[in-house]
């Protein structure tokens, strides 16, 4: 009994410190950053799949009597220059933004995996040719390449996807090639080869799964990045046509009002940041887990 005395003593400092430390430990164990990221992502996914669950307002309905209203209980994110509810626009813009991000990542991964495997598994000549090609494309900044593409083919969600997808592919392709080369030279592949397994079987059973594992993380990180690129294009006026509420387009539309209606710029901006952060946080977590699994 007497051992608990100090904790009950009026001074009680050591005891409460201990409690705080324990609480802190527990909280750290819960990983609030991760939880928050997961919650944010969940919210964003709901917004993308079923936006009407989160808002009953239409993202395009105009109210000329309520233009440029600051955030309030009635319009939590305020209204834009045509009296549209910004919250509804951000929520309804999620699907388009996400689809562009996902589409671009999927495209760039497909291109990267095809080229990377082809380069990594082929002879010196093909490998060299692909490498030179990648180096040339790599020499152009992603945004410049994307801009070129959009200028030639015109602005739309599809060109945005293709532009960002092609623009980001070379980086991934080199990564894939590196992985393939590393795995190809590993002991277990040599062993499989020595055991007389056929080449296609070795690729299928050993090289592909092992080379792809680290890419899972890269894909998650790339998703956030793709949305940022796509938003940048939309911000430059090269995205979806108005009045579609894509995040980057919202950012673009708010630009002219930044001194008089800050919310039009800050809210879509923070949304993009929040999404990219959430995906990146979860991606890092996955990376740590996978590396841990490898060590085991």
């Amino acid at each position: 009994m007497s051992t608990v005395q100090p904790a009950l003593s009026p001074g009680g400092l050591p005891g409460s410190r201990a409690v705080a430390a324990v609480a802190w430990e527990r909280l750290r164990a819960l990983r609030p950053g991760l939880t928050l990221a997961a919650l944010a992502l969940l919210f964003i996914l709901v917004a993308a799949i079923a936006p009407s669950l989160l808002t009953s307002r239409s993202p395009t309905s105009i109210d000329l009597g309520a233009t440029l209203q600051a955030p309030s209980a009635h319009h939590i994110f305020g209204t834009d220059q045509a009296g549209r509810d910004l919250y509804a626009r951000v929520i309804h813009g999620t699907r388009q933004s996400l689809l562009i991000g996902l589409g671009a990542t999927a495209l760039s991964m497909s291109v990267a995996i095809s080229l990377g495997f082809l380069a990594g598994l082929s002879g010196r000549f093909v490998d060299g040719a692909i490498n030179r090609l990648l180096e040339v494309v790599f020499a152009f900044p992603v945004l410049l390449l994307a801009l070129l593409f959009v200028t030639v083919f015109g602005a739309s969600a599809t060109t945005q996807i293709v532009a960002v997808g092609i623009g980001t592919a070379p980086g991934y392709a080199r990564m894939v090639r590196g992985q393939v080369l590393a795995v190809r030279g590993s002991g277990y592949v040599e062993a499989a080869s020595a055991l007389g397994h056929s080449y296609p079987r070795i690729i299928r059973r050993h090289i592909f799964p092992n080379a792809m594992r680290p890419l899972v993380v890269v894909v998650t990180l790339g998703l956030g990045q793709s949305i940022v690129w796509a938003s940048s294009l939309a911000f430059l006026g090269l995205g979806v046509a108005p009045p579609a509420p894509e995040w980057g387009a919202l950012l673009d539309a708010g630009r002219g009002y930044v001194t008089k209606a800050w919310w039009l710029e800050v809210v879509p901006g923070l949304t993009i940041v929040a999404f990219a952060l959430a995906v990146t946080t979860l991606g890092r977590y996955a990376q740590q887990r996978l590396e841990g699994a490898n060590q085991r």
Binding site: T60, S61, I62, Q81, A82, P242, P243
Partner: peptide
């Protein structure tokens, strides 16, 4: 401002 007008007319 003209673009805002066009979007209003569209609606």
């Amino acid at each position: 401002d003209g673009a805002t007008l066009l979007q209003t007319l569209q609606e």
